[in-house]
Design a protein around this nucleic acid. Structure first.
Length: 444
RNA sequence: GGCCUCAUCGUCUAACGGUUAGGACACGGCCUUUUCAAGGCUGUAAUCGGAGUUCGAUUCUCCGUGAGGUCACCA
């Protein structure tokens, strides 16, 4: 029998990465086994559903690059659910019970309860082994709000059964739901699928991630400028490992190749954004023109927001500098907002006291600047690049002390304590501007 | 509290009875064409506790302890 798995999110909140991981593991398992993966949106709670959340589910899977062999919304199966509910009642495996509503003590309702045989249920979990529950305490639990309005557990069992799901791979928080689903399954006569309960993704305080307390929405990470490749790679290794334990980087196809249910861990894993950032950088540096365009767009917005005249040519030259300084796209925003690159576009203000190298006591900083200006003046405009600049100044810098020469130059050009090297800056701002800034600093 | 599950560096993890307990993130140091960044090298850091089983336990068993999940007419 070929493998069939499903992922069953409900549109009652934004797509969070716990769901992303569960979906990923299902996806990897299905692809590895040559099986099918089904997306079933569980929308039976009409009160809490929202079209916005529904759309977010589709958008998120799309962004992650996970696709499905079959997709549907659970409410489409309502007629089937009603049919089986009636069948169960007709067979006296369930019954209609007149009660006062739980949320409204005056309203009377007719809920459907399952006749619970009250047995002990043992099921095998691929990850945890045999798990046994005593189901007597469940009593005759409710499976539908009314004969026409099934509840989660009932709908899940029917849909999984009808879709011939072979493996249910889901979060550990569903372990205690399993026995009651098995009870419904048996009443309906469906075969029992294989269960695999995944360990939870934990917040740094080791509690279950909650939307309230922690940032869990995938869209927020997307907005911060994380790449889907990084997210996939990071999340895959939160609770699963291939075995060797020394490999960190996997593409989606590589994950499919390497994946197995046996490699899934039992203990919960703490979500660590620092490591996600590291992953993101690994994938960011691989990007070519796409990276350039993304960075340019962000820079343009931020720079213009700061009232700085946009210069596309110059900005392009900054891309390599930015590339080695960021892990996520949000870092570009932060860098630009902090005025990190203003001096490439407009003259910096220079503090005379900072011109001498902090280690140099020679008082020669201005003489060095004068020499540098003379040397640079001789370089033809069309040969004015970082390598040539360095050649022209290096011997002198070696002779007089690199710090003594290079610090004043770098500071004169940037007006900052920290910046890229002076040759790079000079090449980007151009010869005229370089000389202008050196003279300005010399006259301080 | 009942039930269920889990337990190796701060974090993610490797080691399926024998290793100086390995790798990655983070952190510290050093190096590299001043500073910053990136990169390279390197260091600090862990088997929850107690009994067993065994020649030998991170690894197997039991008991503690701790942590988490779940106890709906939500999903």
């Amino acid at each position: 029998m070929s493998v069939r798995v499903r992922i069953a999110p409900s549109p009652t909140g934004y797509f969070h990465f716990g769901l992303a991981r569960t979906a990923l593991y299902n996806y990897l398992f299905a692809k590895k086994e040559g099986g099918a993966i089904i997306l079933r949106v569980e929308d039976t709670d009409k009160k809490r559903n929202s079209p916005e959340f529904l759309q977010d589910i589709y958008d998120s899977f799309n962004w992650l690059g996970l696709s499905f062999d079959e997709k549907y919304v659970q409410s489409e199966h309502l007629e089937r659910h009603k049919e089986l509910l009636r069948k169960l009642v007709a067979e006296d495996k369930a019954y209609i019970s007149k009660e006062v509503a739980k949320d409204d003590s005056v309203r009377e309702v007719e809920v459907v309860r399952l006749r619970n045989p009250g047995r002990s249920i043992t099921f095998n979990d691929v990850i945890r082994g045999d798990i046994t529950f005593d189901t007597t305490e469940l009593k005759d639990f409710v499976i539908a709000r009314s004969i026409d309005d099934p509840l989660y557990h009932f709908a899940v069992v029917v849909d999984d059964g009808d879709a011939q799901i072979t493996h249910i791979i889901r979060g550990e928080d569903h372990i205690s739901n399993t026995p009651r689903q098995i009870l419904i399954q048996e009443a309906l006569g469906y075969p029992r699928p294989v269960y695999a309960h995944l360990p939870l993704i934990l917040a740094p305080d080791r509690t279950k991630m909650s939307k309230r307390k922690h940032q869990t929405a995938l869209k927020d990470f997307r907005a911060k400028g994380y790449l889907p490749e990084a997210m996939i790679n990071f999340i895959a290794l939160l609770g699963w490992s291939e075995g060797a334990g020394d490999r960190e980087l996997y593409t989606l196809p590589e994950l499919i190749e390497a994946f197995s249910l046996e490699g899934i861990h039992k203990a919960g894993a703490v979500f660590n954004e620092e490591k996600l950032r590291w992953y993101n950088r690994q994938y960011l540096v691989l990007k070519g023109e796409e990276f350039t365009m993304d960075v340019l767009n962000i820079m343009k917005t931020e720079l213009e927001g700061r009232g700085i005249l946009w210069d596309d040519g110059k900005a392009r030259l900054l891309v390599p500098i930015i590339r080695e300084r960021i892990s996520i796209y949000d870092d570009v925003r932060a860098l630009v907002q902090d005025g990190e690159f203003d001096y490439f576009f407009s003259e910096p203000s220079v503090d005379a006291a900072k011109i001498p190298d902090r280690k140099s006591t020679s008082g020669m900083a201005k003489e060095h600047l004068t020499f540098v200006a003379q040397a640079l003046e001789k370089i033809p405009d069309d040969a004015y690049d970082a390598a040539t600049l360095k050649d022209a100044l290096w011997d002198y810098a070696e002779e007089k002390g690199r710090g003594a020469v290079l610090w004043p130059l770098r500071y004169a050009l940037s007006g900052r304590d920290k910046s890229p090297d002076p040759f790079t800056i000079a090449a980007i701002i151009g010869k005229d501007e370089t000389l202008k800034r050196i003279r300005a600093a010399s006259e301080q």
